[in-house]
C-alpha cells in the first residue's frame, strides 16, 4: 500500500470540500477498496471516509424508497419495507458476500466496487487492460469459468460481482450524484458502461463526484419477485449466474415483467429482450424459454464459461416459472 492521507466526512458538504484538483477517493466500508490498495491493484493519495454520513431509508413521494449511500448492506436487507415491497432486493443482498462483509459494506461502495476477475488482481503475474490501458488481457485464452458471456469486448470480459445491483437494475433504480457544484441523477442502466475499448472506465461517475444515494421507484410487480443465485458453493461465493425477476400477471397475461442477470456480464445486465418477449404474453414454460433464448442469442463464450449460456437459460426459465406459480 502506498501512503495516503485520511479524513472523515460527517456531511456531504464536508465530503465534497476538497480542492478541485484533489485526487481524493471516497471510502465506504472498505471491503473492496482497502483490498485493492493492499494488493497494489489501485493506488490512492488521499481517502475521505464517507461511511459515517447519515444513513437513512426514507419514503419518496411516488411511493418508492430513498436509500442513503452510507446505508450498510445488512441494514438494507433487513429493512421490513424492502422485504415486503422489493423481496428480490433483500434476497439479492442476503446472497452476497458474508455477514461480516455485509455489515461493513455500504450501498454506495457496493455500486462502485470494481468489475473484476482474478487476472485483474494478479498485478505481478498477469496483463490486464483494466489496470494498464492497452496492456493486453491474459484472461482471454486463460481460465474463464467466471467470465462474461454478454457485453464483453476483446479487451475485457470480467464480470460485475454485485448481487444488490442486479436487483436494483431490474427495479429501474436511479443513482443520485453530487460533485459539490452540480447534482445529477442517472438511471442505473445509464450509470454502468460496457468495457469496449476503455475497460478501465466502468461507470459514468465523474472525478470528485460522490454517490449520495439511490432512489428505488414504486413497483407493484416487485411484491412478487425473487433472486436466485447459482454458484460453486452454497454460500459466500460470487454468482456463476444469477437472476433477479419480478412478475405481475393480470387476466392471464404478463402485465409487468422485470428481469436482470448477474455473473454473466461486465455490468448488472437488464434482460430487456427477454422482457419484451414476455410482455403481454400468457405465462408458460415455453414462453419463458423463448424469452431466455431471445436474451441469450448474442451470448458468446470464451471456452471455460460456455456452461453459463445453458445455465442462464434454465435459471431464467426456473425463476419465471416460480414467480408465475399456478398461472403458468
Amino acid at each position: 500500500m502506498t501512503p495516503f492521507s485520511y479524513r472523515v466526512a460527517t456531511s456531504t458538504t464536508e465530503a465534497l470540500a476538497a480542492a478541485p484538483d484533489s485526487s481524493e477517493r471516497f471510502l465506504g466500508g472498505g471491503t473492496n477498496l482497502v483490498d485493492l490498495l493492499r494488493q497494489n491493484v489501485e493506488q490512492a493519495d488521499a481517502l475521505v471516509d464517507v461511511s459515517r454520513l447519515p444513513a437513512s431509508i426514507d419514503e419518496t413521494e411516488d411511493g418508492g424508497l430513498w436509500v442513503g449511500a452510507a446505508v450498510r448492506n445488512t441494514a438494507l436487507a433487513a429493512d421490513p419495507r424492502i422485504g415486503a415491497r422489493y423481496p428480490m432486493l433483500s434476497r439479492a443482498l442476503l446472497s452476497g458476500a458474508s455477514a461480516q462483509i455485509r455489515n461493513m459494506a455500504t450501498v454506495g461502495g457496493n455500486l462502485l466496487q470494481r468489475t473484476r476477475c482474478a487476472y485483474f488482481y494478479d498485478v505481478p503475474g498477469a496483463r490486464c487492460n483494466k489496470r494498464v490501458s492497452g496492456a493486453g488481457c491474459d484472461a482471454i485464452g486463460g481460465f474463464t469459468r467466471y467470465h462474461a458471456i454478454l457485453g464483453a469486448s476483446e479487451q475485457c470480459a470480467a464480470t460485475h460481482p454485485s448481487d444488490m445491483c442486479v436487483a436494483l437494475m431490474a427495479l429501474d433504480t436511479v443513482v443520485h450524484l453530487d460533485d459539490g457544484n452540480e447534482k445529477r441523477r442517472l438511471p442505473l442502466s445509464e450509470f454502468y458502461r460496457l468495457p469496449g475499448n476503455t475497460p478501465h472506465f466502468e461507470t459514468e461517475l465523474r472525478t470528485g463526484e460522490l454517490v449520495t444515494g439511490i432512489q428505488i421507484p414504486s413497483c407493484r410487480a416487485a411484491v412478487n419477485s425473487t433472486y436466485r443465485k447459482v454458484r460453486d458453493r452454497s454460500s459466500y461465493a460470487f454468482a456463476l449466474v444469477s437472476v433477479a425477476a419480478a412478475m405481475r400477471v393480470e387476466n392471464g397475461v404478463i402485465a409487468d415483467i422485470r428481469l436482470a442477470l448477474g455473473g454473466v456480464a461486465p455490468r448488472p445486465w437488464r434482460a430487456a429482450k427477454a422482457e419484451a418477449a414476455l410482455a403481454g404474453r400468457a405465462p408458460s414454460q415455453e414462453a419463458f424459454r423463448n424469452a431466455a433464448d431471445a436474451e441469450l442469442a448474442d451470448a458468446r463464450a470464451l471456452g471455460g464459461n460456455a456452461f453459463k449460456i445453458p445455465l442462464a437459460r434454465s435459471t431464467i426459465a426456473a425463476v419465471l416459472g416460480e414467480l408465475a406459480g399456478d398461472a403458468a
Partner: peptide, 20 residues
C-alpha cells in the same frame, strides 16, 4: 473477525483509523 460497536466485521479490511 472482531465486534465493532457490537457488529461483526473483518479487522483485516478495516483501517484502524476507521475504528477511532
Amino acid at each position: 473477525t472482531v465486534l465493532l460497536d457490537g457488529e461483526r466485521v473483518l479487522s483485516c479490511l478495516t483501517l484502524a483509523v476507521q475504528a477511532a
